[in-house]
Amino acid sequence: MDLRDLHYFEVIAELEHMGRASERLHRTQPALTSSIRRLEQDCGVRLFEKSGRGIRLTEAGQVLLKWARRTRLDVHDAQQEINHLAHGLAGTVRVGIVPTAAQFLLPPAMRQLIREAPEVNLHTVVGLIDVLRSLLHSGEVDMTIGTEGMAEPGFTSEFLAEDPIVVVANASHEIFQGAPTIKDLGAYRWVLQSEGAPTRDWLDQTFERHHLPRPRVQVESNTLLMLPTLIAETGLLSFISRRHLLPGQPSFALKEVNVPETVMQRRMVVTYREGGYLSPASRRLIELLASAAVVNE
């Protein structure tokens, strides 16, 4: 099989439309049709079938897509490993990273990596873990740094740091006048992530387990980095990483509301393809991220 044909096949499978694939790949539709015919001859089966105005993969096509992606990633890994034999700590590291890790772990780790290897380039995508996991599966990033989830076949994770999520308020909030309980938290309004975010769902379920109404949310935001400022400027409670309360952080006006039932124990991990190639620069970055986590705890 020709690697170029496999690349065209991947794009056609993604778009499920020969015309749109032609526009993206800058190839004529007859050229793409010929490419698919060559693959079908090699496989001895149909790879696509008509579906409305477009096309979709047959069962055999789905199998080939899995192996086409794996082949592309293996070829990329081979090129990277050969290149790094000559250049050592150099090249581009592609990282998908959640906001908390991007704010607290990445800057000190990258500062040290640049000192050791000034030729290293870093390409980062900051987002929620579900989005980052998809990028890792497609090979658009080399690794993800985020919260630990269910183990997935074909991927491996290394522990970086504990990252407890706690209830937080402005340090001058009236809730600190006494010894609040989880029931007392229900008297106040909150700023939280939208429903479906892991931390939001965990907090909602915790209140329900204690037979209490869910927190009353006045402000919802998926931009995690703005939550500390919102908490500091309002009387709203929130649920964020304890790392925001560490000495030297700009969120010094915040304080943890000490309610043990509402502490979510979360682990930060780095995840990459099992058996995939990680460059020396990627490996060194993982080591530095782990070191940064220890310093910040």
Rank of each mutant, 00 (worst) to 15 (best):
T234S: 15
L230D: 05
P107C: 11
I97E: 01
D142W: 10
R214F: 01
V45W: 04
T262F: 00
M226F: 08
P153M: 15
R4C: 06
A293I: 10
M143F: 13
G275E: 08
L3F: 14
V75D: 09
E152A: 12
E158C: 14
V257C: 05
P118I: 04
R38P: 03
L237M: 06
V120F: 01
L192I: 01
V295H: 12
V269K: 09
I175G: 08
L65Y: 04
G154M: 05
E261D: 09
G146I: 04
R133C: 07
A232S: 11
T262W: 01
R37P: 04
A31L: 12
H244L: 10
H211R: 12
L203T: 00
A109T: 02
Q103T: 14
S34E: 08
P164T: 10
E148C: 13
L212R: 00
L47H: 07
M18W: 07
I12H: 05
L203M: 06
P180A: 06
S172K: 14
R94G: 10
M264T: 01
V63D: 09
A90C: 13
L15V: 02
L285P: 08
H7S: 13
T144L: 11
H17A: 06
I182P: 00
Q249L: 13
L136V: 02
H84V: 06
G54H: 00
Q41H: 08
L64Q: 05
L85Y: 05
L136K: 04
P108M: 10
Q79D: 10
I55H: 09
H244M: 03
F252Q: 15
G19A: 10
R56N: 09
R283E: 14
E148M: 14
R284E: 05
V11G: 10
